[in-house]
């Protein structure tokens, strides 16, 4: 037995911190979350760990205005399916954006955020969310 969430979260830290999934070397398909068996090739599949680049486009999205207690402080929040450049789709919140500016096709990148907490004294779960790609200027000399 373990305190709520502890072992369940710990065992997938790699996957949720760094969007680590896998790729089937037989059919060249990327999977996230990592799969135990390639659904296309089954016993002929060869799965290897793969760390996604964390870049993609919004496939669909919604603005959540009715959510469980844990999300109250964030409402309204945007949650989306992001189509990663490697092909897999992933469900995640979109942050650092005004909900009304989100649209299908928007370019986003993975960022690191608090996903949930198991109460005030419990475990904090961290992982991926996505945000619009940030402008990078790289200062020229003044």
């Amino acid at each position: 037995m373990a305190e709520k969430g502890v072992a369940q979260v710990w065992r997938k830290i790699r996957a949720i911190y760094n969007i680590q999934g896998n790729i089937c070397k037989t059919c060249d398909t990327h999977f996230f979350p990592p799969r135990l068996v390639c659904p296309n090739c089954r016993r002929k599949g060869q799965l290897e760990d793969y760390k996604f680049k964390g870049l993609g486009n919004i496939h669909t999205f919604t603005i959540v205005r009715q959510a469980p207690e844990d999300f109250k402080r964030q409402m309204p929040y945007v949650v989306a399916q992001v189509e990663l450049d490697e092909g897999a789709r992933i469900t995640a919140q979109i942050v650092n954006v005004d909900p009304e500016d989100v649209e299908i096709g928007m370019r986003v990148r993975a960022c690191f955020r608090k996903i949930t907490e198991y109460g005030g004294g419990g475990l904090i779960v961290y992982g991926y969310k996505f945000e619009p790609v940030l402008k990078v200027t790289g200062h020229p000399y003044p």
């Binding site: 402080r73 005004d98 402008k135 990078v136 200027t137 790289g138 200062h139």
Partner: peptide, 28 residues
């Protein structure tokens, strides 16, 4: 190395204002 990642100014300029009530909600 410059131009690889956002600068301090890039972050300073990326901003959205919140009022005190939203601030109070966010900051618990």
């Amino acid at each position: 190395h410059r131009g690889q990642v956002p600068t301090v100014d890039d972050y300073i300029e990326r901003k959205t204002y919140v009022d005190y009530s939203v601030y109070a909600k966010y900051r618990r």
